[in-house]
Amino acid sequence: LTQNVLKSYLETCAQRTEELQRRRWETFSSQEVCAYQRQSMAEMWQRCAGRLTEAIQQVVEFAKRLQGFMDLCQHDQIVLLKAGALEVVLVGMCRAFNADNRTVFFEGKYGGTELFRALGRAGDSGRGRGQAEGTASDEELLPGCHDLISSIFDFAQSLCALHCSDSEVAFLCALVLLNASRPWLQEQAKVAVLQGHLEVAFRLLLRRTQREELLARLPPAGRLRALCSQHLEQLQAFHRLHPGLLPAAFPPLYRELF
């Protein structure tokens, strides 16, 4: 089972861990950051929804390869993916996060929270960050969005501090997905059995690698849930600001999940 979890994860990762590590100091230039910040809020939301959807497609492929997942009824497969896909992406983000300069791998390079500033407000005219800050014209339209981005970065930072191996990240993702306490499951007992097997295998791995202390140091599951609700709240606030935006502006899978 341990081999299956790791193999499933590695096969469905867009980037190899070594590659992400090797490139962890390749950051966006200030001009490139400005270009992201100059985008309109709607453009940046669509861009991020696109990248997130790509990551979620990989989570679906990961789930399909996990032992036992495809034996569940399709209703439960969908329940688990709807509830867990974003959480899995957030856990996996620690692999693509450089905790030393608080940047994340996004569209080919590493960038900090400022890269995503346009998500919370209209793009500025390209002036430097310092100049725009604190002025009346810099009033934020979705102030909660910056809190969401900071919270996501904080979460990645706290997970990075645990220095998880690929196997550990793979297990954390599998356990987020195969969670028998998700509401609306039709065959909860079946999911509970799979979850139980995963937990045993994970504990055995941690014992073997003398990493048993990891379990006590993991962020509480409520933190992931809170991030997902924050994302939904911001998406709803965005839709209220842009009521005329065509639904087709977001990828179909993103619309289906959120």
Partner: peptide, 16 residues
């Protein structure tokens, strides 16, 4: 079921 058309399709497809 119709509500989750894309997820259904992804789950039914072979490994892509």
């Amino acid at each position: 079921q119709e509500k989750h058309r894309i997820l259904h399709k992804l789950l039914q497809n072979g490994n892509s």
